[in-house]
């Protein structure tokens, strides 16, 4: 199921003092803390079982060509099973790429929340900058992206049901994406 099919945004962005916007904003900021801390087990609990977590590969195309992602190819195209394997791997003692761990900061800004045609979902757009430093003197790496999320109202909390990450680079300047965005 594509992001477009779930949670159809209605109207203008919610005012910044709307309670739904405040809740969505808090969800993203709380999530950023979990990702910075690499507390991925807790993070997994904040996503729905039917999650689709997508990060297309961006390509440079001529103006008017009608597409700017690589057809059929993504960096991430995940469901709960594949995300859970990634998280389980970090919990082993042999995920060398994060041992020693990176120092990370997920900066979240430009948050806009949209009500949906059903009360159970909110659409949230945000901009994200990830700073990642490994070792003592290796050059730090940045990833800049925009995110389009669908949050679902669950019993006592909002959960992430869809995420599309539009990275701003065609060629990534990070040695791998052993991170979440």
């Amino acid at each position: 199921m594509s992001t477009a099919q779930l949670g159809k945004p209605v109207g203008k962005p919610l005012p910044f003092n709307d309670n739904r916007h405040l809740q969505a904003h808090q969800f993203l900021v709380d999530e950023a803390y979990l990702l910075d801390a690499q507390d991925y087990e807790t993070w997994l609990d904040t996503i729905t079982d039917d999650i689709r977590y997508l990060m297309p590969v961006r390509v440079t195309t001529a103006l008017g060509s009608g597409f700017d992602t690589s057809p059929g190819m993504a960096h991430f195209d995940e469901d709960k099973y594949s995300l859970s394997r990634r998280v389980a791997r970090f919990a082993t003692e042999h995920a060398w790429t994060e041992d020693p761990p990176s120092r990370m900061r997920h900066y979240i800004t430009n948050v806009r929340t949209f009500a949906c045609d059903d009360d159970a979902h909110l659409v949230v757009e945000s901009a994200e900058l990830l700073f990642r430093s490994r070792g003592d003197v290796n050059e730090a790496a940045l990833v800049s992206c925009g995110r389009h999320d669908v949050l679902r109202r669950c019993t006592d909390q909002w959960k992430l049901a869809r995420r599309t990450i539009m990275v701003d680079e065609s060629v990534l300047r990070m040695q791998n994406l052993a991170v979440f965005l």
Binding site: V57, S70, P71, M73, S170, V171, R173, Q175, N176
Partner: peptide
């Protein structure tokens, strides 16, 4: 084939 994914490694 699909892609490529492209990234730079040191």
């Amino acid at each position: 084939v699909r892609g490529p994914q492209r990234w730079r490694i040191k």
